[in-house]
Design a protein around this nucleic acid. Structure first.
Lengths: 203, 203, 203, 203
DNA sequence: GGCTAAGCGAGACGGTACGTCTGGTCTTGAT
DNA sequence: ATCAAGACCAGACGTACCGTCTCGCTTAGCC
């Protein structure tokens, strides 16, 4: 959404340039308010007021509250979506590094709130769910799978396993624990998880 | 909440007898409407109208929309919460049986809707999250752990594994897939998941 | 409308008692605001705020801003609508008395504002126009005609004239002058008008 | 406003020539829309869209919706404003002719709508009222008075009457009846009115 | 024949108010 | 005494227009 100006920026001034100021203000305001009052008490009216923007301007660019929050979310986490994982040659270590980073995000109150708002919205809105899956979940999954394939090539992982399942074995438990708040999520937990999963998947 | 009338009904004309009729009507109406319009468009007003009940009567017994839906949920799934797992002596088979049942529920549209409403609400409301965890998640987890312990005793499972983690390795992936709708959830998937998890956890 | 609770409060609770408080507050607020900002800048939102009432409560009882203002209007002028004219035996004198009173109202800023708002609304809304005609214009006209008939009986007015036309000859000019603000409206004007009209209508 | 191009058109291509096309389109559009939806639902946005003109172009030339409608109005009725009345030597007949013409206009739906819009606006906007009075009401009144004076000279009208009052006695009743829609306005009514008014004003 | 200033269409902008909907509380009458 | 019915205050919803403000694009006259 924001990157389509890049190839044009040389010659043609973006016809949407004016909206940029307003759009930024809107997403900023939404992010702040999300942190302050949470998703369910977040109102379009408050966003508009905080951003010093007419409500119509919000509706001009986003169809719903969820869509605005999606923007907040992608701005927070979208950058690294689909980034390739580190490859030091040690599969377990690399997976632990990544999982620890994920956990750190979950433990950051700002991301926590936004992600929960997000997860809730995914339940209500199938369309929205699709967008999230396409733009965040899948790219990240693919990146992990790429690293797993590299691990297979290095003889650190059995070649007869379903990589999608492995990805879910790594993400699912963390997600489950965070989602239902059944127990705290720590680096040590990440390490144990990776070790346990890989334990049975050696060649 | 519903059971405290039982011991009184023998002797005295229950002062709450009338409310019983109303309460049932409310939960019924909520369940119907949940299936018809989904959680986010479910309103207290509609529940009251459908149940032919004053709004006040709802608020008298439940503090919020989420609480009513919780009642619906426990009525649907609460019965078997914490039920011990079957123990045929074959750990893998028993886990597959249970996981398949869980998957069937996820695939049933009625349960699907309610559970999603639920999951969404858990994100917003920490209090509510606690109730769900205590009354559903933990009992179910404990039941699975019990079966795992039995499996350890039978020499089918290593004794040095964190059972909580195993439970999460079984539930997490299914939950993750369902939650984000990344892929369909089948019996075959349940089987493969159990096999993969147990593969590395033999003694 | 406002006084019917007093004598009843002992025994019979008015079914509309609750709304009474709100309705009074609404009409009061509307009247105040009408005087402060005029009709075109009068908003439902402001009335609701001033009356400390939900907007819905206004819309529950009146379909539009015009209808509320109509209530204000009838409360201001409705009392004497259709009241019989004085009958001292001197037709000219009695008509002058009434016309002077009308003129005084037109010259009172509060009534002036409200009446103008009103007149404007009558142009837009045919339904509304009918209500005004039925409840105010016609009763007043009938009262004047009654006095004219009494004048005919007393031999002060020709019997072959169209009384409706005479009423219009008395009201029309005053109204026209007020409406288009072509000239100030004075008691002297009222007297001259009555004299001129009656001049040709002697038996 | 429209005539200031005349003296320039000989020598220089009018810098405002382009605006002419736009201005015409605006007034045309306003007139059409006024007939279609009435004044209160007439919007600047709709006029601009219909005239295929930017909103700014409207605001460049007229300060408000009322001003645009005023233009429509003067285009419809302004031509004959202040035109001298016919003088056949028969005062009553000439007044009836004029009054019948006025009545025909009131009975024409297009003029009716516009004139009502107009009358309403006059109530809200004092500035506007002044413009209407100066440019329409007064010239027309003067024309009638001129004919009345001619009637006085011909011995058909008393010389001791206030001519302004006579004008109001002729216009007021018609206006009053039209304004409040109390009764239909017919040629027969015009005749009766003129006869009744003149009845008492013979020398 | 190119240059520049203005007028222009289009429509985004910050706002206000609309009329509706729902939340959660309070009141009333019937049963 | 409890309930259904629904009025109450409150305030967010998404829409319609307001009047102002860019934006590029004609389109004249003027060099």
């Amino acid at each position: 959404m924001a990157d389509n100006t890049d190839e044009q920026s040389r010659r043609a001034p973006d016809p949407r340039r004016r909206s940029q100021r307003a759009q930024n203000a809107i997403v900023d305001a939404a992010e702040e308010l999300l942190g302050e009052v949470g998703y369910s008490r977040l109102t379009m009216e408050a966003i508009a007021a905080r951003a010093r923007v007419g409500k119509q301007t919000i509706y001009r660019w986003w169809p719903s509250k969820a869509a605005v929050v999606f923007e907040v979310f992608t701005r927070l986490t979208g950058a690294e979506a689909g980034q390739p994982l580190p490859d030091t040659g040690d599969l377990a270590a690399d997976l632990k590094t990544v999982l620890r980073a994920t956990i750190d995000e979950f433990n950051d109150p700002a991301t926590d709130r936004t992600t929960r708002a997000f997860t809730a919205e995914v339940q209500h809105d199938e369309e929205f769910a699709r967008a999230v899956t396409e733009q965040l979940v899948r790219p990240n999954g693919e990146a992990v799978k790429e690293r797993l394939r590299s691990g297979q090539a290095a003889g650190q992982l059995a070649t007869d396993v379903d990589l999608d399942l492995v990805v879910e074995l790594l993400n699912g438990p963390v997600n489950h624990r965070w989602l239902l708040r059944t127990a705290p999520i720590t680096h040590e937990y990440a390490d144990r998880l990776v070790d346990t999963v890989l334990r049975g998947l050696r060649p």
